[in-house]
C-alpha cells in the first residue's frame, strides 16, 4: 500500500479502515481495583438483554487481540504496572474507556493509601462513563459515543 495522499485508492482504503474499526471494536477488560460492580455490568452487556455483540463488540482474553481497553476502578499500587503492561501489549490503534465513577475520579476511594489515582493519571482515556456503576444501557451509550468519535477522526 502506498502512502501518497494523491493516490486515489488511499481515501477509499482509509474509509474502509475507519469503517472496519468502528464496526469491530474488540474489547478487553481490566479491573484495577474496582468493587466488582462495574465489572458485572460490563459482563451484563454481553448477555441477551443488552447483547453488545450487535455493535461488533467482543470481549477478548488477550490484549493482543483487543482494540478497546475497558478499565474499571481506581488504580491500586499493585495493579498499576499490570494495567500499563496490558495497555502496552495492545496493538495500535487502541482506545481506552473508563467505566464507573471511581475509574474517572477515584469516587469513594479518593485518598485511600493504596490507590494511586484514577485511570487517566495512568493512561490516556478516550471516553468516560460515570455511574456507580453505570447501567448497562449507559455503558452501551458510552461505547456508541466512543465509536462516533472514531468515525469522526
Amino acid at each position: 500500500m502506498t502512502t501518497d495522499p494523491n493516490y486515489p485508492w488511499q481515501t477509499v482504503f482509509d474509509k474502509l479502515k475507519t469503517w472496519a474499526r468502528v464496526n469491530s471494536p474488540w474489547a478487553i477488560h481490566f479491573n484495577s481495583g474496582s468493587c466488582n460492580g462495574c465489572d458485572i455490568e460490563i459482563l451484563a452487556t454481553l448477555t441477551p438483554r443488552y447483547d453488545i455483540e450487535r455493535f461488533g463488540v467482543k470481549l477478548q482474553g488477550s490484549p493482543r487481540h483487543a482494540d478497546v481497553l475497558i478499565c474499571t476502578g481506581p488504580v491500586t499500587r499493585q495493579a498499576r504496572e499490570r494495567l500499563l503492561r496490558t495497555y502496552e501489549q495492545m496493538p495500535e490503534p487502541k482506545f481506552v474507556v473508563a467505566v464507573g465513577s471511581c475509574a474517572i475520579s477515584g469516587g469513594v476511594f479518593q485518598g485511600c493509601y493504596n490507590v494511586v489515582g484514577h485511570i487517566d493519571e495512568v493512561l490516556p482515556v478516550n471516553a468516560y462513563i460515570p455511574g456507580c456503576p453505570p447501567r448497562p444501557e449507559a455503558i452501551i451509550d458510552g461505547v456508541v459515543k466512543l465509536l462516533e468519535s472514531i468515525k469522526g477522526k
Binding site: N31, G33, G37, T76, Q78, A79, F109, C112, Y113, V115
Partner: peptide
C-alpha cells in the same frame, strides 16, 4: 491487586460516609 485500604479510609470518614464506602 484490589487492595484499596478501606479499613484505614473508614477511620478518616464519618459514620455516614463510611456506610457507602463499606458498601463498595
Amino acid at each position: 491487586y484490589v487492595h484499596r485500604g478501606i479499613e484505614k479510609a473508614v477511620e478518616q470518614r464519618n459514620w455516614i460516609q463510611s456506610l457507602y464506602l463499606l458498601e463498595r
